[in-house]
Design a protein around this nucleic acid. Structure first.
Lengths: 288, 288
DNA sequence: TAAAAAATGAGACAAGCGTTCCATCTGCAG
DNA sequence: CTGCAGATGGAACGCTTGTCTCATTTTTTA
């Protein structure tokens, strides 16, 4: 007699995901009552973690002994061992979002290989999103939308690190059929392009420390022409802020010297789409 | 005598945070052994949730009966009731992040003003980051890094929606002093640029459904020249995948028709920085 | 359809549980 | 030092637990 299947313990699922996969895989071949528990277990993992064999069996509509057979079928030596997996899952997932993030960041900072680099960037992006979600000034946001919605042409101004955001804004504005002009650094025709802007237009300018001198200079010129500027930058002391009608302070976390763009991207997209929506609405109102 | 404090049950902490506050508040006035458990409970809440009175008492270095007196002192009628609070905490915190996200998304989708748009983009970005963090294939990641690290020139290929990512990669590679060539759509000289690529180079190609035909075509040509391609795309059925030596499947959530770029950005940055690091390391090894 | 095998239900049982009780210890006031 | 009240340790108790066993039902096979 003694212990049953002492040599098979290698195949016992130790973590919840493996267990879950195993159950799904075998689901077809399981006896009716056992399958009933299998379904219940995947649907109510918390109940399995906390309940007693009797209470779980009652909830699932079976006998306690069936529960044990279910566990044994999966390779565990009893219900208790199976339950441990469900509890471990809660322990791990328990860590709140912030704690998980801290773990990612810690792992990234102790520099364990390439995966750590990836984790670092994910953590930086998540942190930035979390921050902006908390700190976004809604009044500024509404002001910026109103300002951009009535512009004839929206000029998008950004260099270097911020340029990807600008290019996505330009892409999205184009998709929404909103006239826009991306001011690129390449061709050297920026001065002329800027010259076309009038007070009936508007500018989205993006720059983070260290501020690209060209962006600042162009923002200065264009604001002197009376064109309202919406600025996305990283501090209220930013040189961009002084030229801007509305500005957003976005604190992007960085990793390995590269700043995340996730918060800026989210803000930029929200601005763009909100402007598109506002235009559609006021278009309707004008011609009802 | 009968039951103690049958009329006081209104003051029993029902949620973990209240309980925690109560404990911290009374900490000074508690007897030694009870304070010992109080400290243990706040330090190891998971153990309280899952353990038995005996096991917890042993871990905390007290008698089981003390544990019960601790519970009663807080107004519970026994250890079991106290334990329920610790279990409830696990249940709630477990899903809090996903629920918060779902709430954000729900609010965004029922369209409550401009703030909802912003929340929607933040939620989409968070979801994408979460997904990629779980599903990234580490072997592919290492392969891609190895492949890119030994390339003479890294060509970066992306159009339209994916172009912002490409431009950030190019920016970062430049910062890291890694020779690279961004294949832009503007000038119409792409065919010639691509012609320069040799099997000693490598390509990072990014495209999501609907795949920009130009990107696919250029990827095809360049792969026929024997240049290895690392692809970032959204499905293993993507036309990009068939030309690629290594490919990543990135599931970006979208909002209002615009896909988040946060996961792709994080992956792109991680790749870039990891390649930079790998080059530094092997450079050291070559000339020690 | 009959026989064999598998699945199921229900009760029995020992182990371990939370709880209670009481003797002992500790710290303090008189 | 004595007396006392609260705090503590440890054993005992009743109950619930997970598990096992076995009779019964259902399904499969011949």
């Amino acid at each position: 007699m003694s212990l049953g299947g002492a040599t098979m313990d290698e195949r016992v699922p130790r973590d919840f995901e493996t267990l879950r996969a195993t159950i799904l895989e075998r689901r077809q071949n399981l006896p009716k009552r056992i399958a009933q528990i299998a379904a219940y277990a995947l649907d109510n993992p918390d109940d399995i973690a906390f309940g007693t064999a009797a209470s779980i069996a009652a909830s699932a509509g079976v006998q306690p002994s069936t529960l044990i057979r279910f566990a044994q079928q999966l390779g565990f030596d009893g219900f208790t061992s199976l339950q441990l997996v469900f509890r471990e899952r809660l322990r791990e997932r328990n860590s709140s979002y912030d704690e998980r993030l801290a773990a990612l960041r810690a792992k990234a900072e102790e520099g364990a290989g390439h995966r750590a680099i990836f984790d670092g960037f994910v953590a930086a992006a998540s942190t930035s999103l979390n921050d902006i979600s908390r700190t976004l000034n809604e009044d500024h946001f509404e002001d910026a939308i109103a300002l951009l919605a009535k512009a004839e042409t929206i000029y998008v101004l950004a260099k270097r690190r911020s340029y990807p955001v600008a290019s996505y804004i330009a892409y999205a504005l184009g998709k929404l059929k909103i006239r826009n002009q991306l001011i690129e650094s390449a061709a050297g025709l920026n001065a002329e392009m800027i010259g076309f802007a009038s007070p009936r237009d508007a500018v989205i300018a993006i720059s983070f420390s260290p501020y690209a001198p060209a962006t600042i200079e162009e923002a200065r010129v264009i604001s002197e022409q009376g064109v309202p500027i919406v600025a996305i930058t990283d501090s209220s002391f930013s040189p961009l802020a002084q030229f801007a009608r509305v500005w957003f302070e976005v604190a992007e976390a960085d990793f390995a010297g590269f700043r995340s763009l996730s918060a800026t991207m989210a803000l930029a997209m929200a601005l763009t789409v909100a402007v598109g929506e506002k235009r559609r609405d006021s278009g309707k109102k004008r011609k009802p």
